[in-house]
Design a protein around this nucleic acid. Structure first.
Lengths: 221, 221
DNA sequence: GTTTATATCGAACGAACGTTCGAACGGGAT
DNA sequence: ATCCCGTTCGAACGTTCGTTCGATATAAAC
């Protein structure tokens, strides 16, 4: 399931798949629009972002925008699908050859934060507008998010299996704790600010690893 | 700075502060509307929630709703201000007499999660609609959130001072990691589901404490 | 009984929204 | 020269939005 298939699934009402020479400029134009829309979504939120504002950001007319995307929802869906797909693909790629579970977690966190640093607006929208899609498009976005979750959960499960903590630890809760920390980043962290992506990734990894492998720090009664 | 003052600050355009006997039913009615609005905000998001839907949820007419709240924004502001105020007040109250820093953190996390479990819709809206206010109302909500953040940060700073970890640890990053975990709860956790509030609080506390006090779990390179 | 203030509501206003329509433009093929 | 087709856009459609207005009902105050 790649982004190509998802786009076409959504593009059924379009006349035909653009071919050869024209395809180049067509896809380029789509990418440009998508990037503009993402910036507007990130700044004002999906609901408040108007198609007119998106058209203006993409430097084209309102009706011209509709030539490339049938509905506003399609802009959000295609964007989310591409981001989640490339996030997942990039992670799987980086995990190749990394066997040690703790190294795999380190890789996952670093990959996620690196991606975030390079696509701030995209990840902000993906974190904040999870429920803005409905019906079929929501389910499709959900599926690929689930794959990302499952992959991360399995890494965490392996770490715990090799190094069980001394207090009862629910793996789902642990996984969602990590995602909470990561997905909240868009609220406060500026990758170009004083705290570098590498520093953030290192500290979050250290904290999380120590948190789920703790020898006997149990304190809650 | 209590919620009463905030309401009145916002109520300036209203004829007069309601007095004595009538005040009872007036404030009761306001509370009822606020609770209805919160549910609609939580279900559809602030932007998509219409005043007509809120009026229907409160079982009154659209124009009747405007008798109690001048603008839609006021509904969100008063709600957020009350929630943040009572969250902060409840935390300060519970911290009285708790001296040991680790006990204070444990108290903070338990208080936050307990409050969440009892006011799910409220905390969902407060977590998700942080940027939906603008101008003066945004600044006021921000101020009280800052007080909550500062209180938590000081607890964490004290723990770290007493038990410094062996890797460099930025206190702001650590604090925001915890808030990320807590504020993300509304996305996936159901307090009435299989994982009890107490169990969640215990695990998050254990993980976080172990994470910031780790002896030598450093792993990121 | 009249006045005054609060509470409630149906109806409407003006603006903004997502979306559609029909016409124009431009270049490659016939 | 003609046709075709992808592209672009101004203008509009119908709907929904937040908000306001004017009228009515109620009940306490004089």
């Amino acid at each position: 399931m790649d982004s190509q298939r998802a786009d076409q699934m959504f593009d059924v009402p379009l006349p035909e798949a653009p071919t050869d020479a024209s395809s180049d400029t067509y896809e380029t134009r789509r990418d440009h629009i998508l990037r503009s829309a993402t910036l507007v979504f990130a700044q004002h939120g999906y609901e408040k972002a108007s198609m007119r504002a998106i058209a203006k950001a993409a430097d084209m007319s309102l009706a011209g925008l509709y030539h490339y995307f049938d509905r506003k929802e399609q802009l959000l869906f295609v964007m989310q699908f591409r981001v989640f797909s490339s996030l997942l693909a990039s992670l799987q790629e980086r995990l190749v050859g990394v066997e040690e579970p703790r190294d795999r977690l380190c890789t996952m966190i670093r990959a996620h934060i690196t991606y975030f640093a390079e696509h701030m607006a995209e990840l902000k929208v993906c974190s904040h507008e999870l429920d803005s899609l409905e019906g079929e498009t929501y389910e499709q976005a959900r599926e690929i998010r689930l794959a990302y979750y499952t992959l991360t959960r399995e890494i965490i499960a392996m770490i715990i299996k090799e190094n069980p903590p001394e207090y009862p630890l629910d793996i789902h809760v642990a996984t969602m704790s990590l995602f909470g920390t990561l997905n909240w980043l868009y609220r406060w962290w500026n990758p170009t600010g004083p705290t570098s992506p590498k520093a953030i990734a290192t500290q979050i990894t250290n904290q999380f690893l120590a948190g789920i492998c703790a020898p006997a720090a149990s304190h809650a009664h």
